[in-house]
Design a protein around this nucleic acid. Structure first.
Lengths: 415, 415
DNA sequence: CTCTTTATTTCGAGGCTCGAAAAAAATAGT
DNA sequence: ACTATTTTTTTCGAGCCTCGAAATAAAGAG
């Protein structure tokens, strides 16, 4: 109905606990006084909240890390998140690749495994079996951490539904509607978040570079496919059905080139690696997209594009136009925001930048700000990993470690 | 910083008051028991809140409107918003038209004036002068209401910045960056909301037809220009700089037809009335857009398009393709949502629907739901009016009538 | 005129935040 | 060595809030 949520007195405490945990998450070592300064809460409230957090084992006093030594007055005692209160696991699933990691509550790596899997020929069963094998192995190797597993975050290439923690469609495997969330939840008894890898990248950027990526920004992954992770008003923007912002499948040319999604004219059909190679090879726009493009041949094409003005350079220019066209439409809807380009395509930004900027320029027709900030991150994997980690840790901070819920078993998957 | 907002105990009461007022706003006559059922609050809390609201004069007990007559037990006493506690004013500013209305707190019209103004030749000063004259006249005619004026909402054609309550650019007048908010705020001493007319339409739909327009939907105005009002997750979506979702200026054809905004290839340059007439007249795509298109000639073209297959019909088909192309991109970003088409363009929907649907079809490449709901509302003015009204009333409900703030003078403009 | 039924208010318990005062724990000065 | 000063942290009481239970109010039914 129209009724929003009803507020209860203890919601206040929940919210302020979140604030304290967020402060601690951002700064590792903080005294109570620091927390007062950061959050704006009163000293009494911070005292009450921190004593509770310490009693529950979520936060530790760390005497050795003395923040302010040799000053007059009672010394501050530094607080820090207790790394051993929880373990989380992350899974990155990409083309021919699965990467699982175990982290502690402070975000330090406990153990990890990278495995090459022929995903194009793998069924949903194959994939889940491999992932579970890997997780089982990690947990078995770290018996101390196994019992403390509290959340799993998964970043996958493809279209996901966050609400049902399902991978709806992915270019890396023929199977569709794979309910990774339910499967992993059933096996490990913890809540599971499944999201598009681009959402994870956005999450990572927000935490690693809060200077530049604060309230509103977009991370665009230029790789095998074209995806986007979007932050609006300081919150991750997932689509209405929470299948994410499919930047790569905005329409660039009506009835244009064949896209891997089966439709025609998508941005991806001009700007992804397969699109660039298809054009470079002189194939028809309607030719079936390659399922896999290896980095070597992509880089070879980029090198040729840089050395001489030919079909290669033209293909990258087309890519720049496609992305620029998408950005122009995106900016019409949500106003210009800082853009992060991530993945192999970011490594060849010099080849696409001029055309991209030409199309985007004059975004605001009535004379608004025309400047466009773009930063490039050629390697997407560390960002995906970190995004998964932050997703899990933030889930613990906000959901699980809210008062009262602490001891309840997390039976359902996460939002 | 990263810190969200800090919660205090009285925030709880504020939120729950909002809930009670929202229930009353939606149902006119409600007993305390009804409110308990609607909101989920306890009877004690509802009792406490309603007695406070009655004491402050915001709510009235209405004995005559007996909800449940002739039943056993103590009869329920109906509560209703007190229409006389506040007056609000709305201003609709469109091409050659200004429409001002005074409403009471229950949303009933007190007085209104419609005035035809040659806006294309009017300066910002002319416009504000006219608006103030009209408002002064209405307030003078209703001496009882004048002192109770508490908010003004303005819906204008063009690009607005809600945060600064400014009209950044508008097709109806040459002047730009007109700070209507500051001007009206200074003159009447109340907070002022200035928004795009399409946002107002969305607001109105949400309240008049909550069945169909709940959490997520878009209202697209097809008229002199092409605009959009968007609701996401039950909240109005204004762009990052809160200049709104400029659907009409998404890119349809790179380097395409000349748009009134000065750029090329915008959807509006194909789908607005001036675009259709330009094409019908056989003019070049790059010809300067007409500043004003009268309804009669537009309808004449539509009639010809219906009667024979010629340039007219082709123009409407182009319009359908442009809108369809925009919808396809929009749906890629935010998933399909119900669409309301509003304004003159909605009256000729039969002419654009086939092409529109053909382009949109297959929106979700991976096999998601393809169904697209479109409803048409040929007359935009009642919706704009109602949207302005609801914006003001909701502002009073949520901001002004929160406890503690009641007697403070509203000196700044609204968000 | 009493009984039953339903609506609303009152009252006490248990939260919460906050400011002021108290306690704790160090350095500085004599 | 011992007191004064300074800074951090905790404790305590006031003033919010919601809620459940009990009390009160106001009808119709018998």
């Amino acid at each position: 109905m129209l009724v929003d949520e009803i507020a209860r007195p203890d919601d206040v405490r929940r919210q302020n606990r979140r604030l304290v945990l967020a402060a601690l998450r951002g700064h590792d070592l903080l005294s109570r006084t620091d927390i007062v300064a950061q959050t704006g809460l009163s000293a009494s409230t911070v005292s009450a909240i921190t004593t509770a957090l310490i009693a529950e084992g979520i936060v530790n006093e760390s005497r050795d890390g003395d923040v302010t030594a040799n000053r007059r007055g009672r010394p501050q005692v530094a607080l820090t998140l207790n790394p051993e209160i929880a373990t989380i696991a992350t899974v990155e699933l990409a083309l021919n690749l699965a990467h699982t990691v175990l982290f502690d509550y402070k975000g330090q790596v406990i153990a990890q495994e990278i495995r090459r899997i022929p995903t194009l020929d793998a069924t949903a069963g194959d994939l889940t079996r491999a992932i579970c094998e890997m997780l089982d192995g990690l947990l078995a190797g770290m018996p101390g951490s196994a019992g403390r597993l509290m959340h799993i975050s998964m970043g996958v290439q493809g279209v996901t539904d966050a609400a049902s923690a399902t991978m709806l469609w992915s270019p890396i495997t023929p199977d569709i509607n794979v309910a990774f969330g339910d499967i992993l939840c059933a096996r490990y008894g913890v809540s599971v978040a499944v999201a598009n890898d681009c959402s994870m990248i956005a999450e990572a950027l927000r935490w690693t570079d809060p200077e530049h990526y604060t309230e509103d920004f977009a991370a665009i992954l230029l790789s095998h496919g074209i995806g986007m992770g979007l932050y609006l008003k300081g919150k991750p923007f997932l689509g209405v059905q929470s299948s994410g912002a499919e930047f790569g499948h905005m329409l660039h040319v009506p009835n244009g080139a064949l896209c891997r999604c089966g439709r025609h004219g998508c941005i991806e059909a001009y700007a992804s690696d397969y699109a660039i190679l298809r054009r470079t090879a002189g194939e028809d726009e309607q030719a079936q997209p390659a399922q896999d493009v290896d980095a070597a041949s992509f880089n070879a094409v980029a090198d040729r594009a840089r050395s001489r003005d030919g079909a290669e350079r033209a293909a990258f220019r087309k890519a720049g136009q496609a992305i620029g066209s998408g950005l122009r439409s995106l900016f019409s809807l949500i106003d210009p925001v800082p853009i992060a380009l991530v993945g192999p395509g970011a490594g060849v930004f010099d080849l696409i930048e001029p055309d991209l900027r030409e199309i985007v320029s004059g975004t605001t027709g009535w004379g608004g700000k025309p400047d466009l900030t773009i930063r490039c991150y050629p390697d997407e994997h560390p960002l995906i990993l970190q995004g998964c980690m932050m997703t899990s840790l933030l889930h613990l901070d906000t959901q699980l470690f809210a008062p009262g819920d602490l001891r309840e078993a997390p039976l359902r998957r996460a939002i």
